[in-house]
């Protein structure tokens, strides 16, 4: 593709994606300083590699692709410095799920009917509750969950990156969804008109 077939990408257009990239990186890294670094590295790499932007994807998709690599680099680096959790943490996290079910595998508490939850998406107070519930997820559980749901990685790629088994990956994702569900039910959907 010739260079002038691509839409003109200006440094301003790249800068305009900063907020999006920062939210994305913060969701995954849960550390504002690290997220800021990853975004900074992404914007620099983008400005230096502008000619590699083909215009076949949107600018945001292209930048997100770069950011994903930067995030993985940060996860690897911090993983070397501070390995994720111990067996004790793992046991504590397992108990979260066990507590939700009776011995015969039935729900201990009855999951509530959330009515039309899509309406909540338009409510800024819902997003505050949502953010708090995400932050409350145990660190390891949150990492796997956001790799799957924010970065949209396959479970195979996640397992490989974190050096965990596929089964363990599914267990952690299940735990994350149940924990998040439980938290939203307690902090938001309880008593909301549906």
């Amino acid at each position: 593709m010739s260079a002038d077939a691509s839409p003109a990408i200006t440094p301003e257009a790249i800068e305009a994606e900063r907020d999006y990239l920062l939210r994305y990186a913060t969701l995954q890294l849960r550390n504002p300083a690290q997220a800021e670094d990853a975004v900074q590295e992404t914007l620099l790499a983008a400005l230096e590699g502008l000619e590699r932007f083909s215009g076949r994807s949107t600018l945001r998709t292209w930048l997100t692709g770069i950011l994903k690599h930067k995030i993985i680099d940060h996860l690897r680096r911090s993983g070397r410095e501070r390995p994720l959790g111990s067996d004790d943490d793992e046991r504590a996290e397992t108990e979260i799920v066990d507590a939700l079910f009776a011995g015969d595998g039935h729900w201990r508490g009855v999951p509530a009917d959330w009515g039309s939850p899509a309406k909540s998406l338009e409510n800024s107070r819902f997003w505050k509750a949502f953010e708090l519930c995400l932050q409350r997820l145990p660190v390891r559980t949150a990492r796997v969950f956001t790799m799957r749901e924010v970065m949209e990685m396959s479970t195979d790629d996640i397992c490989q990156e974190l050096e965990i088994s596929t089964t363990n990956c599914w267990v952690m994702l299940h735990r994350a969804r149940l924990t998040l569900r439980e938290c939203l039910e307690m902090t938001w959907f309880d008593g909301q008109p549906s």
């Binding site: 998406l121 995400l134 998040l180 939203l184």
Partner: peptide, 20 residues
Amino acid sequence: RVSKQFDFLRAAVRRYRDGE
């Protein structure tokens, strides 16, 4: 209910990521 809620969670995370 939980089945629908799991679908909702996925949609909500993406909406949150992409800006409300």
